[in-house]
Amino acid sequence: MLPVSIQVRQALGKLVLPALLLLSVGVMIAGQVEKRATEKARMAVAGTLAPLWNMVSHARAGVADVSNGIRQARHLSEENSRLEAENATLRRWYDVAVSLARENDALKTELHWVPEPVPSFVTGRVVADSGGIYARAVLLVAGTQSGIQTGNVALAANGLAGRVTEVGPHAARVLLITDISSRLPVMLESSHAPAIMVGDNSETPRLLYYPQDTRPLEGERVVTGDQAGAFPAGIPVGTVHYTHPGTPVVQPFARLNQLTMLRVFDFRQAEIEPPGAPGHVPLTHPSHRPLALPFKTLLSPGQEG
């Protein structure tokens, strides 16, 4: 302990709170200026805590399994008969699907169809719900070591969940489609009309910028569109629902508030390079966007700089 008098110590004690308040304001400003460093710090903290969250999440899964087992044991016989009936229906659908797949193959061969590349994917466990009131995001235990990159697409069991925004060596943060900063190009499946799905931190993102002559229909399926080149077309997102007249929202297929596993797909959209065209501004990754304005292709050679 430093040999200071009691008065000085009390005065210093009174200064601690204002100093810390100033420091937190400083941290706020520094966090806005040095976004890269902030992200690195966040991913470092998440990476160290990921094993702990993994443990909690495993324990929770175990408890859920036991309680589910006890609950299901009581309804085994009705469940069995229901499953048998469902199996019979599914067998019929299987036959239909096989014949349709064959027909599809035959038609593609007729048309000299160029096959699409098969996307690679990794599956990770969701270990933390790192959003809050003003954000919707989750943390996965899978990072650059598993081949995940920023911008990859995360799918839940039955629909789109979000996109990878930050990656550390062992953890990746996925921004969910319900977050307020999420803007996705989507397509209404029956009318093929483009729209933008805008998250607002609620369970149901809104649909905006659809053509005024083709309004979204209640119950219509919404799939991803490939307008900006960020997503492959046709990933199921959800169904249209009207909460009020004139405000269509999307009810996502993925149950975004109880995610346990996510598949992260690398569709290699960035590697598809369109042929050059006058006036075409190529889509670049935000981190290595050139500092100059991308208007060079629009200007005549003499006007540059």
């Binding site: 601690v16 709170l17 810390l20 308040l21 420091l23 937190s24 304001v25 400083g26 941290v27 706020m28 520094a30 966090g31 806005q32 902030t38 710090a41 966040r42 903290v45 998440a46 805590l49 933390a128 790192s130 959003g131 809050g132 003003y134 954000a135 995001a137």
Partner: peptide, 30 residues
């Protein structure tokens, strides 16, 4: 619950969550 602990808790909350860094620390200190 000295001010330094409050500050560290707030920063930790911001680092884990998606909130701008320092916001929770500022509010908790206030």
């Amino acid at each position: 619950m000295p001010p330094l602990n409050v500050f560290l808790l707030g920063i930790f909350m911001d680092l884990i969550g998606f909130t701008p860094l320092g916001v929770s620390a500022f509010i908790l200190l206030l």
